[in-house]
Amino acid sequence: MKKIGLLGGTFDPPHMGHLLIAEEVYQELGLDEVWFIPSNDPPHKTATNTKVNDRLEMTQLAIDSNPHFKINTIEIERSGTSYTFDTVKTLIDEFEDIQFYFIMGGDMVEYLPKWNRIDELVEMITFVGVKRKGHDLTSPYPIQTIDIPVFEVSSTFIRERIMQGRSARYLLPQSVESFIKEQGLYGSE
């Protein structure tokens, strides 16, 4: 049975922290692949102003150099609000020979009690939590925790830097930074 990690997010933009988390969990759990799942409309965040095609392209650029990273567009294709339960149920139904691991940061671990159909979801998938500064990995739900090197960066931080005309070098893959500049995203020139 194949073992696949799922890393969802708006990826607005995808950054080195996303890649570090995916690689560390891949190595630690001996996964076959990690699938990046860009969300269409996440229920826990305000809507992004970045076009979904731009976020998808940035995510593809970010993972291009890693052969065990893939993109799955299930949430974009479904449209509307993206609930993890719906995504996981669809993937399990479609890929019966795969064991899935849902990768999340400490901020999402704390939010689990508010997730749609969480009691059913924990029976379907293994949750993997990675530490994030200022967040606790304790939960009333079963979470497999993975220690990773601390690299504190967020998409919000990167967007703010770019809006201020500051560099995002070493926070983003070079290909993603170039795309942002070419497309004039986040007020870049």
Rank of each mutant, 00 (worst) to 15 (best):
M1N: 10
M1Y: 07
K3N: 11
G8Y: 04
G9S: 10
T10C: 10
F11V: 00
F11D: 01
P14H: 01
H15G: 00
H18C: 03
H18Y: 04
L19S: 12
L20I: 15
L20C: 07
I21S: 02
E23D: 15
E23V: 05
E24Y: 10
V25L: 02
V25Y: 01
Y26H: 11
L29P: 05
L31H: 01
D32R: 08
E33C: 04
W35S: 00
I37M: 05
I37N: 06
P38K: 05
S39V: 09
D41V: 10
P42C: 09
A47P: 14
N49I: 14
T50S: 12
K51W: 05
K51T: 06
N53D: 15
N53C: 11
R55E: 11
R55D: 05
E57R: 14
T59D: 10
T59Q: 05
L61R: 13
L61D: 04
L61K: 09
I63L: 09
D64Y: 10
S65R: 13
S65Q: 13
H68S: 13
H68K: 14
F69V: 08
F69C: 07
K70D: 03
I71S: 06
I71M: 03
N72F: 07
T73K: 11
E75V: 04
E77K: 13
S82R: 04
S82T: 15
Y83H: 06
Y83F: 13
Y83G: 10
F85S: 00
F85Y: 15
D86S: 01
D86F: 01
D86V: 03
T90I: 09
I92K: 15
D93H: 12
D97C: 14
Q99E: 15
I103V: 08
I103E: 07
I103S: 08
M104K: 05
G105N: 06
G106Y: 11
D107Q: 05
M108P: 06
E110Q: 15
K114M: 14
K114T: 15
K114P: 03
N116V: 11
R117Y: 13
I118R: 05
D119W: 07
D119L: 12
L121Q: 03
L121W: 00
L121K: 00
E123D: 13
I125S: 09
I125T: 08
I125Q: 10
T126V: 13
T126Y: 01
F127V: 06
F127T: 07
F127P: 02
V128E: 01
V128Q: 02
H135R: 06
D136Y: 12
T138Q: 10
S139E: 08
Y141N: 10
Y141E: 11
P142C: 11
P142A: 08
I143L: 00
Q144W: 09
Q144V: 13
I146D: 05
I148N: 06
I148F: 04
V150A: 14
E152M: 00
E152D: 14
V153L: 02
S154K: 08
S155R: 04
S155H: 03
F157D: 14
F157I: 11
I158P: 01
R159P: 06
R161E: 12
G165W: 11
R166N: 13
R166C: 07
A168M: 10
Y170C: 09
Q174F: 08
Q174I: 14
S178E: 15
F179S: 07
Q183H: 15
G184H: 08
Y186W: 07
S188K: 00
E189R: 11
E189L: 07
E189T: 12
